[in-house]
């Protein structure tokens, strides 16, 4: 086993996802199968290999520090599940 059901539950919590008991079992099984396949990478010795995080190595992409027009507040809020005046409304955070 690469990953236990308890670990899947922990990862779900980190990812802000919740699953039913049945889904949890299916995911544990599928993730195990996938992670087992990933073991393949351990056939390779990569001790001295530099990792690649981007295909093109552009560094320090700079631009002038100048204010440009941005989207109008009301245009942005139009997609909000709940908004009031010029704010997003969320469920109460502090009791």
């Amino acid at each position: 086993m690469k990953i236990t059901k308890a670990e899947v539950a922990h990862v779900a919590k980190l990812a802000r996802l919740s699953f039913s008991e049945k889904e949890m079992e299916l995911f544990t099984e599928q993730l195990n199968q996938i992670l087992l396949y990933m073991e393949k990478l351990n056939e390779l010795n990569t001790q001295h290999v530099k990792p690649t995080y981007h295909a093109l190595e552009l560094t320090n992409v700079m631009r002038e520090d100048k204010v440009k027009p941005s989207l109008a507040t009301q245009k942005v809020l139009a997609n909000a599940p709940q908004a009031d005046k010029d704010m997003f409304v969320v469920p109460r955070v502090i009791n």
Binding site: V8, A15, L35, L41, V49, K50, P51, T52
Partner: peptide, 24 residues
């Protein structure tokens, strides 16, 4: 789930870093 797992504490080097090296 897979992405959160491979980036989580304790597994980052074994999965994400390893994969990025093989990407090279």
């Amino acid at each position: 789930m897979l992405g959160t797992y491979v980036l989580s504490a304790g597994y980052y080097d074994a999965y994400y870093k390893k994969a990025s090296q093989v990407r090279t």
